[in-house]
Design a protein around this nucleic acid. Structure first.
Lengths: 216, 216
DNA sequence: AAGTAAACTTACTATAGAGTAAGATTAGGT
DNA sequence: ACCTAATCTTACTCTATAGTAAGTTTACTT
């Protein structure tokens, strides 16, 4: 690829390559089953380098989560900035999300598909990452709900609910996309907006759904 | 609890207790980090019994997945049978789902929150479990989409998409419920129906959402 | 009251894999 | 051409834990 034959690289570069390799292995095997030797091999160096640069397996994992979390948040935020209605911002944000996940599946798996009980530090880091994604979406939904600028009484809890539903749906659709490789991310976005946004909009407009009355 | 002092139990009973214990530990730690000795302790016996009855750690995990998958599917299916409109069936099914997850959080975590790459057999079993949940939901959505009984051209793919979004949303709302312990499962169900069903209904009625035209 | 099979235990073996000690190279700076 | 610091390696140690061998104890049958 970059260069044949064992070539020495400056730390800043090698570190990123190690994290790249780790991302692949963690995503494929999960934290516990991932083997540091394999990561080192993939990065083209030997194990002690990993420990010299990243400190420990845990540190390595945290570095992955942190880097990818920032990348995702950046992609999302940047996309959502453009667009001048809440609707457009949500659309752009979701679009960026699907595009990101389609292109960096490993990142998403490491960020959101890990059993987060591998020690305090890791749990903390993953919780932060999720919170940050959720907060981003939550903000957009809030803007969409509070039409105009009125006081949001229960809008707070409502937005959190919808944000969870949205993020979960998006996560799951990530699998759907894998089984429909033809489908471009934009179409997935449009479809999801069709269900969720239309639902939200109409519910806000007063078209509530209520369970069919049991008897009376 | 049942009886003080080391009491011997027939295999059929002890097996279930082992699976109960395993469910808790697998759910808390994840497959790899779960330690068989801890499971044995929790079940009130020694490790060799686990191996005698369940064969291996893998076998133990598979037994958990199989049992809980069937329980969830049964709860879902039973609830969805009652109700005579697609709408009612979906509502009842989702309700059963949230009730199940609220009561057996461990089961859900083991079924849907594991990195499924711990060997062929496990991947297979988890894939089956997920497929079975998805198929159940897919059926209800399909019935909801094909109003009356007309030929479903793209209804097939469409239902699969909506089913994924629904299951993902429900999964994520599982976390939301943990942070809002006051909220009863029925209200969560109603809220989700409000967003998703209303969205679906209106989209089917022709109220499509389209991205705001970029320029022209 | 044996006899016997099922339920259960103690006390191991074996290995995978995280982490490290001690030093060997190589790239640049002077 | 040397010197030095950064890069990198071989070859370990040591622990955790999956899995098992060889019994021991209890309960049920006849």
């Amino acid at each position: 690829m970059t260069d044949k034959r064992r070539r020495r690289l400056p730390r800043s570069v090698r570190e990123q390559e190690i994290i790249d390799a780790a991302l692949g292995v963690f995503s494929k095997r999960g934290y516990r089953a991932a083997v540091v030797d394999e990561i080192a091999d993939l990065a083209g160096i030997s194990k002690p380098m990993v420990y010299l640069y990243l400190g420990s397996k845990e540190g390595l994992f945290i570095a992955c989560v942190r880097r990818e979390s920032q990348r995702l948040a950046a992609a999302f935020r940047e996309a959502a900035q453009a667009g001048d209605s809440p609707e457009q911002r949500l659309w752009a944000g979701l679009g960026a999300f699907f595009a990101f996940v389609a292109e960096h599946r490993d990142s998403w798996v490491v960020l959101h598909r890990q059993a987060p009980e591998q020690g305090e530090a890791i749990a903390q880091e993953i919780a932060d990452a999720r919170r940050s994604v959720m907060a981003e979406v939550n903000g957009l939904v809030r803007d969409g709900i509070t039409k105009g600028g009125e006081a949001d009484r229960l809008g707070e809890q409502e937005a959190d609910f919808v944000a969870h539903a949205l993020v979960g749906a998006a996560d799951s659709l990530t699998d759907w996309m894998e089984r429909h490789p033809g489908e471009p991310p934009e179409r997935v976005t449009v479809r999801l907006m069709n269900v969720m946004w239309v639902g939200m909009r109409n519910v806000l407009a007063g078209e509530v759904w209520a369970p069919p009355q049991p008897d009376a």
